[in-house]
Amino acid sequence: MRIVVCVKTNLDLQMVRIKGREPVLEAVPYKVGDLEKNALEAALALKEDGLDATIVAVTIAEGDRKIGETMKEALAIGADEAVVVDDPALAATDQAAIAAALAGAIRHTGGADLVLCGEGSTDGYSGEVGSRLAELLELPQLGYARSVAVADGAVTVERSLDDQIETLRAPLPALVTVVSEINEPRIPGLMQIMKAGKKPLTELTAAELGIDAGATASQTAVLSELAEEQDRKHIMIEGDAAEQAADLVDALATEGVLRR
């Protein structure tokens, strides 16, 4: 069977600095998203459990960065092959166009028996793409999985909702999104990284998938994007631990935030 893992590569958020209230994004590298690594790990675990599967990592990029390099990380973690839709037409777009490109790429490259996504991306965290993709591919969706099992042509997940754990089952093909608690993604070793460069990587354009400019136009407009304003006192409390403790408790009492 084919397991497709949808991989968003996002800016390394640890490297994003705020200047004034503006984010500084120049020279910030891209990396495979955190939840996408969980999704890859979940696919690998299924395979290691004896499922006869090919793991395909699919990503979308906007043509102006070395996406093939970034995707080597996904291949090193353990994907068998990568599919990259790399096209400037996808530069100023949103979740609907990303989902359309993913759907096109999956259909174009042999389909999927199981699609795995993160429940949201590390940066935008909208959680829309998995659901939109399930609708486009007319798949049953099982969101927020903290465990996933495949048997007898069906997928079963335990999913983590706000106030309960729900167990869902659906016949394959199906789409599953995972939460971070599902597993601890492995860190690839040197051998895996070396082998990653030799694994197949298919590059596609939006036009090859029949996606035109109209389909990639953004359905949303971002009017502003600034860091929140914070008005804080920045008082540093000096002294040894006992003095710091005493001064801090006094300060908190003055603030009126202690329960007395």
Binding site: L13, V16, D123, S126, Q219, T220, V222, S224, E225, L226
Partner: peptide, 18 residues
Amino acid sequence: VGSRYSLGGATVAEVRVE
């Protein structure tokens, strides 16, 4: 116009749906 966190919470985006 809705506001939501973006860039992993580093910023807040104001979003209008078109």
